[in-house]
Each structure stands twice: as structure tokens, then as C-alpha cells.
Amino acid sequence: MDILKKLTRKSRIKSPWLLHFDCGSCNGCDIEVLACLTPVYDIERFGIINVGNPKHADLLLVTGTVNHRNKKVLVNLAEQMPEPKIVVALGSCGLSGGVFREAYNVIGGVDKIIPVDVYVPGCPPKPEAIIDGVVTGLEKFSKKKDG
């Protein structure tokens, strides 16, 4: 049993499937997330696939500011992800609202809506930083309970 559990844990770290939600970002972070998937950074090396479906995902990458309309979407998506899951907020906007903090339709960072596990600063974060963020997130997996 113990071996199975260990194996599951290890697999979890080895195969985090990713769901990317653009929660009102300026596209800067988005294209960097996409750039991560492309040959030069190729995060599939770590077993990461962009699945685009919360029901298959382990890792929610959120970019951008939360506004009144997309906060519901964000909650819905997080809810449809089976445990264990990790939420990674990307970029200044995702962390706090960034330059747009004071705009009237901006609530602020992602953590105001759903709990965030990893914060990746940058405007936008470089793909390297995103990889670092994901790796930091994966370390959290070992601390999470089994689903």
C-alpha cells in the first residue's frame, strides 16, 4: 500500500496537467504561458499538458486581474477541478491587480476570490519564472492530502 501511495505522489509531481485561465489579463502573461508550451521552453518535459478542461486539470494557472464578471467563472473552474489541485497566480495583475488595481472594475488579485498556492511575480513573468512557479507548486503537492 505504501508503495502505491508513494507512486501516486511521485506521479502527481511528474504529471501535473495544466488549466490556464485568462482572468482578464493584458495577454502579456497569457502569451508567456503559451510560450512555455512551445519548443523553446517546452514544459511537456515535466509532463505538463495544457488540457483546457478543469475536470482533467491538476494545476490552475490564473493570469490577470479579477473583475466582477470573471470572478464567477474563476470560482466555477476551481470548483470543477478534482482534488488535489494547485492554484498558481501569475503576474502582477494576478497577484494584486498590478497597475489596474485602482480601476473601477477590478477587484484585485486572484487570492481575493480563491486560495492561491503559488505567486509568480513579473509583468509578465518570464517563461523561466513560470516554470519555477509550477515547480514550487508541485512541491506543495506532496503536502496535499490524497484526493
Binding site: 497577484l95 503559488v118 511575480p121 519564472a129 514550487t136
Partner: peptide, 9 residues
């Protein structure tokens, strides 16, 4: 370079 990602603000 950027700051490293962190788990707490």
C-alpha cells in the same frame, strides 16, 4: 531577473 515565485505574499 525576476523574483522567485513564492507561496506567501
Amino acid at each position: 531577473d525576476y523574483r522567485k515565485p513564492v507561496t506567501d505574499k
